[in-house]
Amino acid sequence: MLTVKNVTKKFGNFTALEDINLEFISGVYGLLSPNGAGKTTLMKMLATLIFPTKGEVLYNGTEITALDEKYREILGFLPQDFGYYKSYSPVQYLEYLSALKDIKNPKKRIEELLEAVSLSDVKHKKMKKFSGGMIQRVGIAQALLNDPKILILDEPTAGLDPKERVRFRKLIESLSHDRIVILSTHIVSDIESIAKNVVMFKDHKLLYSKSPDEICAELGAANLEDAFMIVHGEESQ
């Protein structure tokens, strides 16, 4: 279980997140908020890239930074801006990242993942010729390399076409039974059908961490998109 306990994150005088309490067990968690609400800040904290100013993040009761590489061993992370070397092919890049993730004999795993994200045909092509969507799919594949117990995906569907988004949703749903999948998005349809819980922030505070149905019922909304508009309508416009 991944626990966010009384977490506040400040950047100078700016409070990005205030007194957040969350618990993640296996399943898909969708972080749904407008840009600038603190989704990426939370994800970076869960990926040990930044630390809370106050509070702590625990995995099975232990601070994630104390777990150090043991935590990163079970972590898959796709940053919002996925970086890559343009002169590398997906296979070369995934082999490089496999070594940094300490994965033994990764070739078969890389083949499977490139198949899963429909990049098998271009696996030896240099990534400088790839579209944004193809790069994003390489990013998704690398996040899954170590078969992570905790998968953190920051706006994973950015740049994907509708067909790929459907394919991505199915992939995530199939993975979510025995692991924690946390994905951030501001596209409601990305998570509506697959998220066990939807996490919403407002004014940098936690507003909801409930199932889509519960949120809709509480707000009297017909669907999650309506609920989102009720909460963030003015901000989103």
């Binding site: 970076k44 990926a47 040990t48 890239l49 590489e69 990163r72 061993e73 972590l75 992370f77 940053p79 801006d81 996925f82 970086g83 990242l97 070594a99 940094l100 993730k101 300490d102 690398q142 170590n146």
Partner: peptide, 9 residues
């Protein structure tokens, strides 16, 4: 950012 989240960072 990506490298910082790997086992060997």
């Amino acid at each position: 950012e990506l490298l910082r989240a790997c086992k060997y960072t």
